[in-house]
Nucleic acid binder design. Sequence first.
DNA 1: ATTCACACAACAACCGTTATGGATATGTAC
DNA 2: GTACATATCCATAACGGTTGTTGTGTGAAT
Lengths: 206, 206
Amino acid sequence: MPRTKGDHDARRRDVSEAVWRVLAAHGFGGLTMRAVATELGATTGLLTHYFPTKRDLVTYALDLLDTRSASRPRRTAGTGMSAVRAALLDILPLTGDATVSNRIWVSSWDTALADPELSDDYARKYARSRDKLRDLVAAAQESGELPAGDPARIAAGAQSFVLGLVVQALFAPETFPPDRQAELLDDYLAALVSLPSPNDGRAVRT
Amino acid sequence: MPRTKGDHDARRRDVSEAVWRVLAAHGFGGLTMRAVATELGATTGLLTHYFPTKRDLVTYALDLLDTRSASRPRRTAGTGMSAVRAALLDILPLTGDATVSNRIWVSSWDTALADPELSDDYARKYARSRDKLRDLVAAAQESGELPAGDPARIAAGAQSFVLGLVVQALFAPETFPPDRQAELLDDYLAALVSLPSPNDGRAVRT
DNA sequence: ATTCACACAACAACCGTTATGGATATGTAC
DNA sequence: GTACATATCCATAACGGTTGTTGTGTGAAT
């Protein structure tokens, strides 16, 4: 029984949620046409209507993951160092939603690494994320909260740290509860702050 | 044509290498009975003889990944801080072999995260790795190269950093060539060293 | 004679994809 | 407004291909 025009947008939202539920339940490796269809209470005929091919489904799922992650409620970022901290905290699996999102995210790496095109897409995505972080770092440096040094380099390091912490927290949630993750992040940030400026010798010369 | 008894161990080694080649070529998602069999120039009959079920193959592949990673030629570890640095460098995808190994490793996370049992296995594996790192950190602290502080906490942070760097380097090899990875790691270690001791106030009181 | 190490063949289940057809909405002619 | 052509939305069913698994048979080793 087809829907009316007014219901069409609602149906699109239903499809999104079905895709999300499948991803959350079985990861990216378990993302199949039929799984989404049955999760939707429909058949593959509907799915092929929205996604002519499997790759379309995968790309859509990747976009969905990106969108869902981006539209997650963010901390109200302050300025300088606290903005950096907030941005990094927002990545970590501190809530149930963030955990689900991160789990899907990590599980997508298998698919992404196997496909050069998707791999490039991911590389660009991470590069953009690093750029945003770099700007925050540069701002924290200008406010004097962070010692001098290539902001891009510091951002790359911070992103690595958070990324790795995500993975460890996903595999061992009891070992890395939210407060421990925040603790470790604060350790990292404290180390960054305490670092003597390498490029900028003013503090030494004065 | 069956083999003789003397060839049996050789055959087991052949199986290992076939599994490894399949993993290297198609990742963990492409690990199938038939793929390994054809890679071996044999049929599935042989495979089921060595691995009665798929799960056995997967578990074996996970173990193989662990073994191959562990038996990779390691840097001759010095003492104290240089030992910590060597251990962390050994994880990074700095060589072709290490890149292949790490790629397989990351691709296995999809499978592992979808299966609670495998997930636990990984958690234990990482915990053991953190423990070894913790001992190295503690040694570096005793030699005075690293400020005081919970060595387990420092090890967890360092492991996170390296893990995340691995992921980023795999997706953007041109952005993270070997020397840049080493650079970033050294930045991290420098920050660790420069950190004033939190628990131990001696330096301040003197 | 029994066990082992395989080849070979087949199975049911699942995958992505395609074709067919029917129900509903939309547009157009009168 | 009514009548008809067209397009959209979706169920149903089937296709060939691949998967994990099982069973049978056969030659060599013990």
